[in-house]
């Protein structure tokens, strides 16, 4: 025999595929179970209006979760997405309300600001070798402070910019298909998810997300400029956070400078429930999307059942632990 070794790649590959799909199925199945459970418990739950409310409530957290997913797959973490979202909203307020520029400039400002903040975090992590947890913790506080300074601690309203609130609340889809009155915010979430999933699975940037999370030193020794790619990944995550900033500002028709803290933990929770490994190298956008939906369904369903808000938080915490435990049980070599 002249071959170096015989192979059974089919079985190995199919085993891995099974495992991956299994995790998505697990999260997806939980979502379905929750939906069925709540609709049995309360007739008000399965109303179209309530479903749309759930999706609308998912949009901001979902977009943030997608941003954090990219960073987490590299083996990092981004704690600054909540206050960064607020910061991009405040900058949009400066551009639209203080400077009176047209709407498109506001949109571009939010995304560019996010990308810039992300590239700063990325630089701290990649060039200055600060652990992601610390670098983005610092960034979280810097951006929270800057939002308050720039806005003078007061909300900035978008009353002078007609159409700004349409970004989140209007429904382009509903005008074309009256039967599908999906708000723009939800549409944007799905578009962001589709684009992010494409980038993650079909582009070089996405490949290096997984590669960095899997074995960074090896990527570096292969001659890849890991610093540059890492900064690019954080910047992309930041740009996505800019979209979330637009969504929340549009929904509130204002930039609320005091808002933001806590959003990053919700986003990370969604990512974890969706089966992305916090140690890096594994994860999916679809998983995070489902994770965000599970959290929104829980909150909404428990509210419909008139469970006190304090208890909703307790349940969410328990779900996170259960989700990760289920994931570990599944990974455990038999």
């Amino acid at each position: 025999m002249t071959t170096l070794s015989t192979d059974a790649p089919k079985s190995a590959l199919s085993r891995l595929l099974m495992a991956v799909t299994h995790q998505k199925l697990l999260a997806f199945a939980s979502l379905i179970v929750l939906l069925i459970g709540f609709s049995i418990a309360s007739p008000n739950f399965m109303q179209t209006s309530n479903m749309i409310a759930i999706l609308q409530a998912t949009s901001v957290n979902g977009v943030l979760a997608i941003a954090v997913t990219l960073v987490i797959i590299t083996g990092g973490i981004d704690l600054s997405v909540g206050t960064m979202m607020t910061f991009t909203a405040v900058i949009t307020g400066v551009v639209l309300t203080f400077l009176g520029l047209p709407l498109l400039f506001g949109v571009m400002a939010a995304i560019a600001t996010g990308a810039f903040c992300g590239s700063c975090s990325g630089t701290f992590v990649a060039k200055m070798k600060i652990p992601p947890f610390i670098a983005t913790l610092g960034m979280m506080l810097i951006l929270k402070g800057l939002s308050l300074v720039i806005s003078g601690t007061r909300p900035i309203y978008f009353n002078d910019t007609p159409g700004f609130s349409e970004i989140s609340r209007g429904s382009v889809l509903g005008e074309v298909f009256p039967a599908l009155p999906l708000p723009n915010g939800v549409l944007i979430l799905f578009i962001v998810a589709a684009v992010a999933a494409y980038i993650l699975n079909r582009t070089v940037l996405g490949r290096y997300c997984f590669a960095l999370g899997s074995n960074e030193e090896s990527v570096r020794l292969s001659g890849v400029n890991t610093d540059r790619w890492k900064i690019a990944i954080y910047a992309l995550a930041g740009a996505i956070v800019g979209v979330a900033g637009l969504l929340i500002a549009s929904r509130l028709n204002s930039a609320q400078p005091a808002l933001g803290l806590g959003y990053e933990l919700e986003a990370i929770a969604a990512v974890v429930i969706g089966g992305t490994s916090l140690s890096g190298g594994r994860g999916s956008i679809l998983g995070s999307l489902i994770g965000a939906l599970i959290m929104a369904v829980l909150t909404n369903g428990l509210r419909v059942l008139s469970v006190a808000q304090e208890w909703q938080t307790v349940v969410t915490g328990a779900i996170i632990i259960l989700a990760v435990y289920a994931d570990m049980m599944r990974r455990k070599p038999s």
Partner: peptide, 30 residues
């Protein structure tokens, strides 16, 4: 070839072998 294995376990064989030199299409698509 390094003494300690330095592969990315979460990627496939091909993705490992050609890391850094992935055949690309426009806009960084693989």
């Amino acid at each position: 070839i390094h003494q300690e294995l330095s592969l990315m376990n979460d990627l496939t064989a091909a993705q490992n072998v050609l890391i850094g030199r992935e055949p690309r299409r426009s806009f960084g698509r693989l």
